[in-house]
Write a protein that binds this DNA or RNA. Structure first.
Lengths: 235, 235
DNA sequence: CTGGCTCAGTGGCCTAGCCAATAGGACAAT
DNA sequence: ATTGTCCTATTGGCTAGGCCACTGAGCCAG
């Protein structure tokens, strides 16, 4: 019954566009292309890689979304800045194991600022989403759940309310790491209620438009989560 | 000559796939689709949206990369979890403009925390590197330079002193963006000296092991840089 | 109940082609 | 000399239509 560990490595299927995107990406690195340099025309590149233009186009879309290249109609495809150090971050951190304290620190740095910005910039729609997440979490807990999804939605709504794409992107970057800590934290007895209370305090500060209070509330909230990290380490 | 700020909002062109991705994304939200729910078949969806299957496919690639959906060969396209937070990122793809304020905000969030951590964790070696960068910057300015390299080294040394791999990675992530603001900031008359003074204050707080003071000094320093952003925007 | 088979539905990828945007050169107007 | 206009080659944007590969469900023989 112990099929817990993967027997066959679950052989993953990659779409062609993924391979193509990967090749292009490494090709950029290997040839030392810098920001502003142009890639070969699509027609030529497709032929060289042995794929159709449609597939190549998909690969370019993927690279564009990730921020590696910029495709300019009628002009060409150019390499953008910062094409390196993409989201290998998650793996890098995970390999080091036990980076939990670091995750907490980072989360504190980002979310404290996010909360402060949200307090100043939130629209009514933002508030509605935050309240919605709050209600969802409360209902889940009421029903005996841990409110994991509501927790995630709450933080997502606050992040959105900060209206900072860069901060949102960085949060997304470490999203998977945070998710793991979230599961552990909410697994502790009484924790969901405490967490919900923390969320309410944050939401109120944001509603009141008080950045300092929002930052403080968020800081306290993140600090509460960090207890888990310490316990886990001590164990 | 003052073409610094774009007069016309640089009217952004959106690719069709971006619009399609956006529509699908909002459609998911509006219809309350949850994780695991299936989207209509590509052929049907393409027809309903009035685009070719190839374009729809691009949109799905974009949504897949962002993490909103999962496309399964032979089965269908299903909505993944966390489409909530991620849908905001889709919009991020479009906004190519006006990132400067965001960079400042993000930098403030990260570096304030980094400075506080550095004050607590710095080793003697870390201090030595910080002092070295400080001296280098001072010498450069003395010689009439702008101290750009020293500035970069200083911030790098402080980041290293925080001993947080994750924070360092995120700083690296936005490193190129920061570099641009740095060049502008240090180009202003009298700025290098002010910057150097700010660095010294930060260094002293770190040396004294005072996290609150270090955070405050760093915050003030970053705020000074933000002046440039505002000036540039107002112009 | 198990394993193999078929089949309908669905995505993966391709070919071929036209449309639209851009950059850059030629050339006229100033 | 400089500026503005036009033309054109180049390049990406998007479509149409088609074939292949994979998946899941139902059926059937063992």
């Amino acid at each position: 019954m112990s099929e817990s560990s993967s027997f066959p490595p679950r052989l993953l299927r990659t779409r062609l566009y993924e391979q193509v995107a990967g090749q292009i990406s490494t090709w950029i690195d290997d040839n030392g292309l810098r920001a502003g340099d142009k890639l070969p025309p699509e027609r030529e590149l497709a032929q060289r890689l042995g794929v159709s233009r449609a597939t190549l186009s998909q690969a370019l879309v993927a690279l564009e979304v990730v921020g590696v290249v910029e495709v300019r109609h009628g002009d060409g495809t150019v390499v953008t800045a910062r094409h390196q150090t993409s989201s290998r971050i998650v793996e890098a951190i995970r390999s080091h194991a036990d980076r939990l304290p670091e995750i907490i620190e980072t989360r504190d740095a980002l979310e404290t600022k996010i909360a402060a910005l949200a307090a100043v910039r939130r629209t009514d729609d933002d508030l509605a989403r935050i309240d919605d997440a709050l209600a969802s979490m409360a209902a889940d807990i009421e029903a005996g759940g841990r409110g994991v999804e509501g927790d995630e939605r709450f933080h997502g709504a606050v992040t959105a309310a900060s209206h900072s794409l860069l901060l949102a992107r960085l949060m997304d970057e470490i999203g998977d790491l945070i998710k793991e800590t979230r599961l552990e934290s909410l697994g502790q007895p009484g924790r969901p209620q405490d967490s919900l209370a923390g969320h309410r305090a944050i939401a109120e500060a944001i509603r009141a438009g008080d950045p300092a209070a929002a930052a403080e509330a968020m800081h306290a909230h993140v600090a509460m989560v960090s207890d888990v990290a310490l316990i886990r380490e001590a164990q």
